[in-house]
Design a protein around this nucleic acid. Structure first.
Lengths: 364, 364
DNA sequence: TTGTAGGCGTTATCAG
DNA sequence: CTGATAACGCCTACAA
């Protein structure tokens, strides 16, 4: 209270003065530079605390050309998966000392995707995490030739990190087949969605692997509405079980089936995908496939930061385009001890089946 | 191809040179300063396009002390309302030329809220939009004495902008009462959530207004699980109708009721809150109350920007604390034509009842 | 209406 | 290990 408070916010200048060192030394402490004597560092640190010093990111960015900010283009952020990913990404980023700036887009609208990306680029983010549910979204990305590290998520096999959609679908179909179902239908997501495609493929593969006839495939748009609307077709198809590409459609389908007087699971068994919170408490509790979005986010953030930190820039073709993975096609298992060592695996994450009550043996 | 590309990114300097003006003039064009001759402006603009000029926000921020960034503290972003708000906020902000930096927190954990806010402050955001579902969250905010414009959302009446929770609850109860129900129960949200409290209050008020007996109140935690779990109590209470504080619980309750052999709506009518996508396609289609999150977001963004733009800073006690509203307690209706004129009304937004099939007259 | 100086707070570079 | 000096790219004065 005795001294007159400076009008301006405290800066390295002030800290340096109080600690009796140069601004540069303060800067070194700030950046954890190794070559600083322990006691000097201590003096600086206490000076910072005494003054309530807070770094000015704008100034830092001006010098370093880095903003420590990751842009997240969250398409369809209202869907369960993307919203989970978003929250998890923020957590991972914050832990790593990064900020998240978000942009939302309607993945079906290429223009909106382009705009969102431009918005993020204008913000000078160090890297981008893009949810690319559509093949079209990927095309937009390619066309833009973004000059910064980019990690693609939610794009099935075309993503840099993903939960194995095909494997999940096979798990779903397997549990149905194991229960004795022969006529299994698939209520798919929109055909142009990569994850929907992955699940549809897994559906077909598992059926084929078991020598079961290719089941009828109906398509929805992920919404409960579309699931509800598919009820009539499902009934007409004579299927005794259906694998819905997501829980929302599964739930809608159950609603539609019941409205038509068809019981679930007695007459028709159902398996969903996602394990949304309501799945466990629906009637009947829904058997479904759970994905680990937290792990997905963790890996994505680690990768963007690694790409940026390793000096990957527009001029570095390898890192920039964020190609799926450089060489998992390789010969020897873990022959490259250096490089990508600490970065998370880019192998697909295995989903897990959650067994509940929506599957029973067929009535026949 | 003929000229050698400069290594550095293009800046005002380059644009100025090409346009044959001073850097200052370019800056004026950039900031839509009125005093620039039309043709000069045109020349500058085309120069910018030719060079592919992009503003450097860090440099701008360093000078202006403004980042054109709004921090959003999204607690419980996985809930329907908050996630809708989040997306809408981003859209409004982007339209206004602002960026969104997001932080997520567990609103139940005061420490995590505090950390998230610190994170955002460190980022030097121009303003904050905080989802404050808990009274406790508000306490944390007060304690922090944030020195920047802050707008509170999702805190019922204590929010700066809100959808009228009480009114929504009354709408729900009214439709049940109008159908002839006398024994109406409430499946409430967590007691320490402001919006849950608002809905519970509306429930009680409408009942009282109609001279109906105060119904039993059960409490859940917003989750389908808790709705499912409340089924037994609801049945035991003898209620013929229940107003669930959100759709997820309503859906879970329906699941629990059916599992217990109780039909909805024949034996028990139900009304939810939120109008989540699955509500319309559940079985039965759920009667519920819809909130306009987009409008909420629009107003919130307009306000933060206005507070920041009008020079409201830490030293301006009026704007800073973001007190609910300065004087709607006032005498004359719209007596203050100046000031807040263009800013959106802070009156609560009216929710709307969506009638579907989960309400029928009581069996008796 | 336009141009000229100076500075914003930090980091990089190069000495010592 | 530490310190001087010069950017970084833009904006706010003030002058013309």
């Amino acid at each position: 209270m005795s001294e007159s408070k400076p009008q301006r916010a405290v800066g390295v200048r002030d800290v340096a003065a109080l600690a009796g060192v140069s601004r540069q030394t303060v800067s070194r402490v700030l950046n954890d530079h190794p070559d600083v004597a322990p006691d000097t560092r201590a003096r600086v640190v206490s000076a910072m605390e005494e003054l309530g010093y807070r770094m000015n990111n704008a100034a830092r960015a001006l010098g370093t050309h880095r903003t420590r900010t990751i842009g997240v283009l969250a398409s369809d952020a209202l869907q369960y998966g993307p919203s989970r990913s978003m929250a998890a990404i923020e957590a991972s980023a914050r832990e790593a000392g990064y900020w998240i700036t978000a942009a939302f887009a309607d993945s079906g609208d290429e223009a909106s995707v382009g705009q969102a990306i431009e918005h993020l680029r204008a913000q000078a983010v160090d890297g981008l995490i893009v949810f690319a549910p559509h093949a079209r979204t990927l095309d937009v990305l390619d066309a833009l030739r973004i000059g910064i590290p980019t990690v693609i998520l939610h794009a099935a096999e075309r993503a840099d990190f993903s939960v194995d959609q095909r494997a999940g679908a096979r798990l779903a179909v397997a549990t149905l087949a194991d229960a004795g179902h022969q006529r299994i239908a698939h209520l798919a997501g929109p055909a142009d969605w990569l994850e929907a495609e992955g699940r549809a493929t897994g559906f077909a593969q598992e059926l084929a692997a078991r020598g079961l006839p290719a089941g009828p495939v109906f398509s929805g748009d992920w919404s409960p509405r579309s699931g509800h609307g598919a009820a009539a077709e499902v009934i007409a198809s004579g299927a005794t079980a259906v694998f819905a590409a997501n829980d929302q459609m599964a739930l809608g389908l159950i609603g539609g089936l019941r409205a038509a007087g068809v019981d679930v699971p007695e007459q028709i068994s159902i398996v969903g995908f996602d394990d949304v919170p309501e799945a466990a408490y629906a009637w009947p509790p829904l058997t479904t496939v759970r994905q680990d979005f937290e792990e997905l986010a963790r890996r994505a953030v680690a990768r963007v930061i690694a790409l940026g930190g390793s000096g990957a820039t527009a001029s570095d073709p390898v890192a920039v385009a964020s190609s799926g993975s450089s060489g998992s096609s390789g010969s020897s298992g873990s022959s490259d001890p250096v490089a990508v060592a600490s970065v998370a695996s880019s192998d697909p994450i295995a989903p897990v089946l959650v067994v509940r009550d929506s599957v029973v043996p067929p009535a026949g």
